[in-house]
């Protein structure tokens, strides 16, 4: 590991000196530093800043401080009651130990698990711009079918972020240029020809909180995750959904987001659009998921996601429709 200096942050708008990065739980950053993929000159610890609270927003939403630990958010009674998909997504991620360290901000900004990215000795356009992308012809079994580019097909690995995308969460940011807000669906960039830039954040911008606006239909919502073993593994595909159905069986409101298919938590706008006002049936759910995948570009070894995601989506929406008690 390259040596670095360490200090604690004194204020959210302090910014960062060149070469410095923020340290939160460290569960991704320290790992990447050990691997020689992250080589910061300085760490600025943000866990002592007063960003560790979950507060009510008027109308039933929640403001989640950036330093709130994943385990505390998953267990928060308000989050469990109003946004079950969010609590379920958090509990589906990592392990009890990791969730106790991992923070809201760090979880959103965790980096891809692409094996070439996590190996400093391999070429990779994300860790070394211009060095190439061995994943295209190599191991891309869990990489993107949507939103990738010639330069990079990494997936964003977070579970929590998928639920937040479905919920239209808003990310609060502060820094030397002043505070601003970013919809969580616009936080992560698609790689294009700059896969080294994961997000739209500028150097020194700190995530301070994430707002989850009230969503009445979210009391009937869920998160489903497929993975290679029963627990403690990243998703190979995941679905976050909320659904409301009218008395005559039509979809009145639907939120749908996918994980492990794209460089960002993938909000399935196209599928949602297609479903609104349509009968809440398996055939309609499947057709909507297929429509979302119309633009997909699967590779040799990740085409299974083209079948996995529609199946998971259909099953989850059917379950939510049943729970509506029709």
């Amino acid at each position: 590991m390259k040596t670095f200096s360490y200090r604690t942050a004194t204020g959210p708008a302090d910014g960062l000196e060149p070469g410095a990065v923020f340290l939160a739980g460290g569960t991704n950053l320290v790992d990447l530093m050990k691997l020689g993929v992250a080589t910061p000159d300085a760490l600025v610890d943000v866990t002592r800043l007063p960003l560790g609270e979950i507060t009510d927003l008027p109308g039933g939403g929640l403001r989640i401080g950036a330093a709130v630990r994943n385990s505390d958010l998953a267990a928060d009674p308000r989050a469990r009651q109003a946004f079950p998909l969010l609590s379920q997504a958090l509990l589906a991620g990592a392990s009890g130990q990791l969730r106790n360290m991992a923070t809201t901000g760090g979880n959103l900004l965790q980096r891809t698990r692409c094996r070439y990215f996590m190996d400093a000795t391999k070429p990779c356009n994300k860790h070394t711009p211009g060095s190439g992308c061995p994943a295209r012809d190599g191991d891309h079994r869990n990489l993107a079918i949507l939103g990738g580019s010639e330069a990079c097909i990494a997936t964003h690995p977070s579970d929590m972020a998928v639920a937040l995308a479905a919920l239209d969460a808003i990310v609060h940011v502060d820094g030397p240029a002043g505070p601003r807000t970013i919809p969580v669906t616009g936080l992560h960039r698609l790689p294009g020809d700059r896969p080294d830039r994961d997000t739209v954040l500028e150097h020194g911008e700190l995530i301070t909180a994430v707002d989850v606006p009230a969503l009445p239909s979210a009391t009937r919502s869920a998160y489903r995750k497929a993975r290679d073993r029963a627990s403690y593994a990243f998703a190979v595909g995941s679905v976050a959904a909320a659904l409301a159905v009218t008395d005559d069986g039509l979809v009145s409101e639907v939120r749908l987001a996918w994980g492990a298919v794209a460089p960002r938590p993938w909000r399935a706008w196209r599928a949602e659009e297609r479903l609104r006002g349509r009968p809440a049936t398996a055939a309609e759910f499947r057709a909507a998921a297929d429509a979302e995948l119309a633009a997909a570009e699967p590779g040799r070894d990740n085409a299974y996601k083209m079948e996995l995601l529609p199946r998971m989506t259909t099953a989850l929406l059917e379950r939510l429709a049943d729970r509506e008690g029709r």
Partner: peptide
Amino acid sequence: CDHGQCGACTVLLDGRRVNSCLILAIA
């Protein structure tokens, strides 16, 4: 594993279980 993947390094930090291999002592 030294990378958060096995739990062999688990200790309690203020009573909460954590992987000590991914935690910097200085923090």
